[in-house]
Nucleic acid binder design. Structure first.
Ligand SMILES: [Mn+2]
Ligand SMILES: [Mn+2]
Ligand SMILES: [Zn+2]
Ligand SMILES: [Zn+2]
Lengths: 140, 140
DNA sequence: GTACAGTTTTAGACTTTGTCAAATTAATGA
DNA sequence: TCATTAATTTGACAAAGTCTAAAACTGTAC
């Protein structure tokens, strides 16, 4: 990832303090929620409205600058690792989220046998399990 | 699926009109939302509280009698086809949901290379695309 | 059949996550 | 710098679901 200002200008987005800070927060805290990111941004620039956090996350997601994932039982999470078709591994008990390389290949998984006449454009995979920390906790 | 009353008794659940009706509604309307199901139940038995619909769906899900799926941008959906590790194909524009046999095999997909020390128990796959009806609409 | 104990159901308030709309403020380009 | 355009803020609102306490019901023991 290049610097946030360049990224914004390349996508014809006016550069604002809020956008820069949100973009930096996403880069430094992969898989964070909107709330997590708002906290980070406040530590960096003092204040931001909840609506602006959502505005910025939405526009960045629409432009493909960041990616939104929405696992069950969790608010949406964001990351700046886009375009590499990676998947996620989520802890059922604490929500910890890790990246997982696509199991099948580069632009993969798209083969559900083209079923039901759908035009498939993405295969989203979430692996559910228990993270090492939660395994230890439940054994004790 | 056997009859709802037997199912409830087998799982030591007291048999109530609400549970029977919700279970029947799930069986007749796969991938329906809690709201959809509440509507169905009301047509069948006249009335049910919102809380009861959720209570019943939760207890049935906990017992493994039904399954809950939670695609992004949609409230939770329920089905009584459990234990066969099938996946789903969801239309991005209208939400239509279809079953898809597991792409890899019977107890499949569980191989994310056991990454990050997680103990993986499920690989959830959602294929995203456009259903035939929405394809037609967007072409015209 | 009754009565009792333990569950379920109900109603209503509440929480979380996110959106909408109008007024204010800030960024860009001339 | 000014005008134009776009972004930010504020506050209300919405959807989906949970929490709680009171009322109603189910299963079981007499
Ligand atoms: Mn990721
Ligand atoms: Mn299904
Ligand atoms: Zn964990
Ligand atoms: Zn569709």
């Amino acid at each position: 990832m290049q610097d946030p200002e360049t990224t914004l200008r390349q996508h014809d987005l006016p550069v604002t303090a809020q956008r820069l800070a949100v973009l930096r927060a996403v880069a430094h805290h992969p898989h964070a929620t909107a709330d997590d990111l708002a906290e980070q941004v406040r530590q960096e620039i003092g204040a931001i409205s909840r609506q602006s956090v959502y505005n910025v996350l939405n526009v960045l997601t629409d432009k493909g600058i960041i990616r939104r994932i929405q696992p069950a039982h969790s608010p949406a999470r964001y990351e700046d690792r886009v375009g590499d078709n990676h998947h996620h591994l989520v802890c059922r008990s604490c929500g910890q989220t890790e990246d997982v390389c696509c199991a099948v290949g580069a632009a993969p998984c798209l083969h559900a046998h083209d079923q039901h006449g759908f035009q498939i454009d993405e295969a989203e995979v979430i692996y559910w399990g228990t993270c090492p920390a939660c395994q230890r906790k439940s054994r004790s």
